[in-house]
């Protein structure tokens, strides 16, 4: 069913296999973090390892495999990795700001891990309220 050449050399198979195992385990751990962590502000850190390390090792494995298999330089996976490196931070930052903004707008206490937030983060809250209000009115 799978189209793997029967005479594949161990020098190619073993690095590709190691990269794939690493990547898939990290992917699984990242989504496990997404499911298991208790608050949104912690859950947003879980998929970050999926995006960086999991995708990175899969793309590296793909590049290595096709370069050796087709006996020419196949590096167009670099496009996907560059694209992910540029876009994943934007998504994370927008989601984080969305969460902060929505929590402040709903007047909810920031669902932090600590039951009572220390003074520093309390100040951050008021500053962010000031920060966000004019935006909200302009919109």
């Amino acid at each position: 069913m799978m189209q793997i050449p029967a005479d594949i050399s161990p020098w190619l198979a073993i690095p590709v296999a190691l990269l794939l195992i690493c990547g898939s385990i990290i992917t699984l751990v990242g989504t496990l973090g997404l499911l298991r962590l208790p608050h949104f502000y912690q859950r947003i850190h879980g998929p970050a390892i999926t995006i960086t390390f999991g995708a990175g090792s899969f793309l590296l494995a793909s590049m290595l495999y096709f370069t050796v298999l087709q006996q020419r330089l196949v590096i167009h996976e670099l496009l996907i990795s560059a694209f992910i490196m540029l876009t994943a931070p934007v998504t994370a930052m927008l989601l984080m700001r969305t969460a902060v903004y929505r929590d402040l707008r709903n007047g909810r206490q920031r669902p932090d891990t600590k039951p009572e937030p220390p003074a520093a983060s309390g100040q951050a809250t008021t500053a962010e309220v000031k920060q966000h209000r004019p935006d909200g009115e302009n919109a």
């Binding site: 793997i4 029967a6 594949i8 161990p10 198979a13 590709v16 296999a17 794939l20 195992i21």
Partner: peptide
């Protein structure tokens, strides 16, 4: 080696 890669 083919088997290894398939399993992985």
């Amino acid at each position: 080696m083919k088997l290894l890669l398939e399993i992985v």
